[in-house]
């Protein structure tokens, strides 16, 4: 009977501990988001983004915005678009190769290397991006300096493993039956891939891309080493410096001159938080619902 009561005590302790852990985690997350909202929500207004500039002329790039987040947002947007533009074709193709064509040994080596790439700290990718810049500057063109283009290439490497993996997993998880259906009708491997497999794997692939976009939007370490600056305005070309939302938050946190600037920092943090959570939610919804929706309309 003594054993039973000790067992009962351990059981109680585990249950209490787990509730405690849950409570701590929820408290922390509420504190983080709550604090940001408490400090930053009141800054939410067009002025946060456009400052004292007229929104229309800022959007049309007629006037430069000095005291708002507009250049940083534009920089982040361009950066995301460019990196995803590099990474989607290469990552999807590589994922398809891994799922559909690669055999035993090749697949093992590729898998290991992609795991490694996925595990590399983003600052290491940034350092690589920077050394690539040095290399290109010395051997290709003296005009090349850290810039939007090189940042986007380095960031593409950061998100490549995500896209490869989600594509691969989405394809490999399809039932064997679906794979055989098209082939039994005389489809070639490629026809089967494009007409049967990819449409069914689309939901998984899209949600992977959205998570990759979130990763691009929030990453600070890569761009810190490859061309982001605190003040550059809207980038004039892909070979120029640029601003970005996460770097702005980082910069403000240590270099703010007055409470006004700090408030903009809070605003930027909320904005970035919402952008990332929004992408996350969309990815989640797509993963759950897309398959039926896409196909019922065909």
């Amino acid at each position: 009977m003594k054993g039973a009561s000790v067992g009962r005590f351990v059981e109680r302790a585990i249950i209490t501990f787990s509730w405690l852990a849950g409570a701590i985690l929820l408290t922390v997350i509420c504190a983080v988001t709550g604090y940001l909202c408490f400090k930053g929500l009141k800054t939410m207004s067009p002025a946060l983004i456009f400052g004292s500039t007229d929104p229309m002329s800022a959007l049309l790039l007629r006037q430069r915005v000095f005291d708002g987040l507009f250049p940083a947002m534009a920089g982040t947007l361009l950066l995301v678009l460019m990196s995803v533009g590099w990474a989607i074709p290469i990552g999807t193709a590589a994922g398809i190769y891994l799922a559909e064509y690669a055999g035993g040994g090749t697949k093992k080596i590729f898998n290991l290397l992609f795991d490694l790439l996925a595990g590399l700290p983003s600052i290491v990718i940034g350092l690589f991006g920077f050394s690539l810049t040095l290399f290109l500057n010395r051997h290709v063109s003296k005009e090349l300096h850290p810039c939007l283009l090189l940042s986007s290439i380095a960031l593409a490497f950061l998100i490549l493993p995500y896209i490869i993996r989600t594509t691969q997993i989405a394809l490999e998880n399809l039932p064997v039956q679906n794979r055989l259906t098209g082939l039994a009708m005389g489809a070639t491997r490629l026809q089967n891939l494009f007409h049967v497999l990819l449409p069914q794997a689309l939901a998984g692939m899209v949600s992977g891309v959205l998570l990759a976009i979130g990763r691009c939007a929030e990453d600070t370490a890569v761009i810190m080493l490859t061309g982001v600056v605190a003040s550059a305005g809207v980038p004039r070309s892909i070979l120029s410096h640029y601003e970005a939302l996460p770097f702005y938050i980082f910069y403000i946190s240590s270099q703010y001159a007055d409470q006004q600037e700090l408030a903009t920092g809070y605003g930027a943090a909320i904005l970035l938080l919402f952008i990332c959570l929004f992408l996350f939610a969309v990815a989640f919804v797509i993963k759950k619902n897309l398959p039926c929706q896409v196909f019922s309309q065909r």
């Binding site: 679906n178 259906t181 039994a184 009708m185 007409h195 065909r298």
Partner: peptide, 24 residues
């Protein structure tokens, strides 16, 4: 041609399903 044990319509319309081999 081959027909499987479980009906295996592809997730497309009825028309596209039947027309699919022709298209391929």
């Amino acid at each position: 041609g081959m027909v499987f044990q479980m009906p295996n319509p592809l997730p497309m319309s009825i028309f596209k399903n039947v027309a699919f081999p022709l298209q391929l």
